[in-house]
Structures are given as C-alpha cells and as structure tokens.
C-alpha cells in the first residue's frame, strides 16, 4: 500500500511529468489559455493515461515479452495509444453526447501527447506490476491536470499585465513554467522518508 501511495504522489507532484520530465509540453503550452479548456484537456488525458498504462502493461507482458519481440515495443505502444484514443472517442460519442461535447475536441490531440508514450516507457523501465502501473497512470494524469490548471490560472491573469513584446506567448509561458518547476522542486522532500 505504501508503495502505491508513493508512486501516486511521486508521479503527480514530486516527479510531475510536465515539470520534471518535460512530457506533454505541447498541450501544456497550447491548451492552457483558459481554465475551462485546461480542465477538459486534463481530464481527457488522465482518462487515456490510466487506460493506456493498463493496456500497454498487458500487451508488453503477455505479447511482447512472451513471444520475444522487444524490438516491436515502440511500434506496438504507439499503435495501442492511437487506437485507444480512437476507441475512447467513438465510445464517448455513442454513450454520452454531453461528455463528448466537453472532451471530444481534445481527444485527437492526445495521440501525439508524448506524456502517454513516456508513461508506457517509464512503466516498462521501472518494472511495475499491473496495479502499480494503474496507479502510476492515474497519478501522472492528475499531475498533468494539476500543472495545466495552475498554468491556465496564471495565464488568465497574465492578460492584464504588460509583458515585453518579444516575450509574449511562448517565451513568457516557458519562463513561468520554469518558476513552477522550481516551486514543485520544493515538494521533493515529502517522499524521501
């Protein structure tokens, strides 16, 4: 149990995917202008991440390792993620039009979100069990949502401030992300003892 909690906190806060591994930076910069948008994107990503962690775990252990095909790892993972996103999109559209309207437009963007492939690769490298992989996916998704929300909150305020013209847009966003990364480093100690 303790291991699971540590994995969750570490994936969500101390080793936040966006702020320490730089995974998922594209949506982090692209979809963080409005809080509402950020929440939608965050939830959709968390959902796919958790699902992807479980699916890739099963495929890696019961197909790739079993038949000795480690070299197909990257191709297999990216195909799983792409098809997963497609299936989730179709499923949501059929079952819940409300949810689809809220999350639908973000789903296709998730395929090229490197956080998901990164998640699958880290999971394999760290030799997690199935349950650990599930928690890891959930934690990483929550961490991603958290970072996205904080960023969106700051950027909404930023519209009223006077930023040098050259730094407007990507430049300022990156610098703020740097300050956030510094702030998140402060959480480093909570997992140690």
């Amino acid at each position: 149990m303790a291991t699971l909690i540590i994995i969750f906190i570490s994936a969500a806060i101390t080793h936040n995917f966006v702020l320490t591994y730089f995974l998922g930076i594209c949506p982090f910069i692209g979809v963080s202008k409005r809080l509402e948008q950020a929440l939608g994107m965050g939830l959709a990503t968390t959902f796919v991440m958790t699902l992807a962690a479980c699916t890739t775990w099963v495929v890696y252990h019961f197909v790739l390792l079993k038949f000795g095909l480690p070299f197909l790892q990257y191709v297999a993972f990216i195909l799983i993620i792409a098809s997963l996103v497609q299936i989730v999109e179709m499923f949501i559209r059929k079952t819940s039009p409300v949810l689809y309207r809220a999350l639908g437009i973000y789903l296709p963007l998730i395929t090229t979100n490197c956080a998901i492939l990164g998640l699958a690769l880290f999971m394999v490298m760290r030799e997690y069990t199935f349950l650990e992989a599930f928690i890891f996916g959930l934690g990483a998704g929550c961490g991603f949502t958290l970072a996205l929300l904080i960023m969106a909150g700051i950027r909404e305020q930023l519209e009223y401030s006077n930023i040098p013209k050259a730094l407007q847009g990507a430049g300022m966003t990156l610098i703020i992300a740097g300050l956030l990364a510094l702030a998140f480093m402060g959480f480093g100690g909570i997992v140690s003892d």
């Binding site: 702020l19 320490t20 730089f22 040098p164 013209k165 050259a166 730094l167 407007q168 990507a170 430049g171 300022m172 966003t173 990156l174 610098i175 992300a177 740097g178 300050l179 990364a181 510094l182 480093m185």
Partner: peptide, 25 residues
C-alpha cells in the same frame, strides 16, 4: 546548479525565444 535542473531548461528556452523574437522585430 539550477541550469542543469528542469527549471533552468524552461527559463533559458523562454529567454531564447524572446531574444529570437526581439531580433526579428
């Protein structure tokens, strides 16, 4: 040390993008 840390990466690239835009302007 901060330059080797993630924070340093974000901030340096942020300023690099800024510098690039400034030269273009």
């Amino acid at each position: 040390v901060v330059m080797a840390l993630p924070a340093g990466a974000f901030i340096t690239l942020g300023f690099l993008v800024g510098l690039f835009n400034w030269i273009n302007q």
